[in-house]
């Protein structure tokens, strides 16, 4: 059984937001409600200021706090692939998972639109949040895929609708391999500087495992015990992993 994971090389990421845009198109996201986002921030004080950025999908944790707190088992970890998904048929919108997620990757459907004007008013939905003119062909409410209904929480699915169809036993899903590119998550496939890699963390031969081992991949906020399946590479030349900044080796 595969355990899909992602490696993001922060030294290569240019903060272009192509991943965010691709995710929004693939998953019919509302403007500003980005399952995959690149967060910008600055460090230091004038005149010594650094503009920095940080790409952030859902981390599909090995031990996800969002799963353990869910009172209806709507959020669950799929054994095949290790995806953390939401069954919209079971979600009651209590938002405990949003409270418990250390990474802020979850969105409640019915909040005020982040980007105004609210496009839901332009393409109003009936039983779903909105009804855009283009809808992705995938729709699986039991896995939180498609346009979400009212009153539920949504999040990145690691493009489950693509990845789950990949040939069994494949170690990496690389957009440069023609026969595999259709199975690559949207954010990985469009990454122009090739800062993202996607593969099987349980396969010792996978490229993602080699990257993590060779370049000392780190997981964000590991102290919370969630054990993300997304690793960051940061050689120190570009953006550092924020929560580990205080642990920089000064030698």
């Amino acid at each position: 059984m595969a355990k899909w994971g992602m490696v993001i090389d922060l030294d290569k990421c240019t903060g272009c937001q192509a991943c965010t845009t691709a995710c929004a198109m693939e998953n019919n996201r509302l403007p500003g409600e980005n399952w995959q986002d690149v967060l910008f921030y600055h460090e230091g004080t004038y005149p010594n200021v650094n503009l920095m950025w940080f790409p952030r999908p859902c981390f599909h944790c090995e031990n996800p706090s969002c799963v353990s707190v869910c009172p209806t088992k709507a959020t669950y970890k799929e054994p095949e692939g290790g995806f953390v998904l939401i069954d919209w048929n079971k979600c009651i919108g209590c938002k405990y998972c949003q409270v418990a997620c250390p990474y802020g990757v979850r969105f409640f459907t019915d909040e005020k639109a982040v980007v105004q004007p609210d496009i839901r008013g332009v393409f109003p939905g009936t039983d779903r949040q909105w009804d855009p003119p283009y809808k992705g062909p995938q729709d699986d409410p039991s896995r939180g895929i498609g346009i979400q209904p009212h009153g539920v929480v949504s999040k990145c699915t690691f493009c489950h609708h693509k990845v789950s169809k990949a040939p069994k036993g494949v170690a990496d899903l690389d957009e440069d391999i023609p026969e595999l590119k259709e199975y690559v998550p949207a954010c990985v496939r469009v990454c122009a500087p090739k800062a993202r890699f996607f593969g099987d963390l349980d396969n010792p031969e996978s490229h993602v495992n080699k990257l993590i081992a060779d370049q000392r991949g780190v997981r964000l906020k590991d102290e919370t015990g969630n054990k993300p399946q997304v690793y960051y590479l940061s050689g120190g030349a570009a953006a550092a992993v924020p929560s580990l900044r205080s642990m920089t080796d000064k030698t």
Binding site: V67, S68, V69, C70, P71, T72, K73, A74, K90, C91, I92, G93, C94, K95, Y96, F108, T109, D110, H150, G151, V152, V153
Partner: peptide, 20 residues
């Protein structure tokens, strides 16, 4: 709650023992 009515049966019959 987002779905208050459904919560009435979804919570008790979920047997989500890990959730406070």
């Amino acid at each position: 709650l987002g779905k208050p009515i459904q919560a009435l049966w979804l919570i008790p019959f979920s047997f989500a023992f890990d959730s406070p």
